[in-house]
């Protein structure tokens, strides 16, 4: 396909307008019952993540236990949506999460740079799926995108999707490197056209990671694609969402842009690690009326 590829026509994005619209969701007042329900929903949407060079089996086991039971004091807090790890940790996560229903997501395709031969990247994907990953978080090759080789980006996503087999594919655009909202919109559409089940903002290794305007542009791409084709695509902002307050704003944005159908962990995820304990802290505050010390919340 390579050279003949015609990139999709996407609407242009006005940066000032998109930023202003995203800001509107920050002025929603989410209190009391909607806050509690929202926080629990967000907890169920968390892709609890550890992506460090220093990851060990012990660290992943701890994370998985946290994922199953985020708060010992509050059994009504749901387990998280998925645990997100490097490929070599997948067998450990699989053992720890057996029977929990929690998905195993793995970052494959030479995360976080994506700078490797497609063949090597595909091998990594196949091995990771074979090891038990339910979801693959791939990175696109931003070099290809920024140099205008959109056909290569499309082909790469399409090939990875095929290699995923039954695993769901999340495509990381690394929006912090794409810079403009026009690029974000185009990359989102290419990824969706090539078969992405989810589109995701960032690896978490590049700043800025997820922002509200970037997520808005991606949600609008998903919305327009759904209205045109009837195909739902999921969304995962990742990196930089550390507080419950900010996560609630994202949730309001999903509600108002995509509607109720996306308000589940099947279609929306937060890529985060420290967010979960802030959610638990806010929920504890709603229960008791007081903020608890962080020492009452277990490390993940």
């Amino acid at each position: 396909m390579g050279n003949d590829y015609v990139p999709p026509r996407v609407p242009t994005i006005d940066e000032v307008g998109a930023t202003e619209r995203a800001k509107r969701f920050s002025s929603r007042s989410l209190k009391k019952s909607s806050k509690v329900a929202g926080l629990k929903l967000i907890a169920s949407m968390v892709d609890l993540t550890t992506l460090e060079g220093a990851d060990t089996p012990g660290k992943v086991e701890t994370l998985c236990q946290k994922a199953r039971q985020p708060d010992l004091q509050a059994p009504d807090v749901p387990s998280v949506g998925a645990v997100c790890v490097y490929p070599p940790m997948v067998p450990i996560a699989k053992r720890c999460l057996e029977g929990s229903g929690i998905k195993i997501a793995a970052v494959a395709t030479y995360f976080p740079s994506g700078q490797a031969d497609l063949d090597h990247r595909l091998v990594e994907v196949r091995e990771t799926v074979k090891a038990g990953a339910d979801e693959i978080d791939m990175v696109i090759n931003r070099g290809d995108f920024l140099s205008g080789r959109y056909g290569r980006v499309f082909d790469e996503v399409e090939a990875v999707k095929e290699a995923c087999g039954s695993a769901r594919l999340k495509v990381i655009l690394e929006t912090g490197e794409l810079k403009t909202y026009d690029n974000v919109r185009l990359a989102s559409q290419i990824a969706i056209d090539a078969g992405a089940d989810f589109i995701k903002t960032s690896t978490g290794k590049v700043q800025p990671a997820a922002t509200m305007p970037v997520t808005l542009v991606m949600l609008e791409t998903i919305r327009d694609h759904y209205l045109k084709t009837g195909k739902m695509v999921g969304m995962k902002p990742a990196g930089g969402i550390r507080t419950a307050k900010l996560a609630l704003r994202y949730l309001a944005m999903v509600k108002e842009v995509l509607g109720d159908a996306w308000l589940s962990n099947e279609w929306f995820r937060f890529g985060a690690s420290s967010l979960l304990n802030d959610l638990l802290m806010q929920l504890a505050k709603e229960r008791s009326g007081n903020y608890q010390s962080s020492r009452y919340f277990t490390l993940g």
Partner: peptide, 26 residues
Amino acid sequence: MAPGPRPLRCTSKDTPVTAKKTTKSK
């Protein structure tokens, strides 16, 4: 696909509603 975590119903009504059902009902 393997059964995932139970989607959360956030209103006061009792029956859990999955995203797919919502899609249909809409």
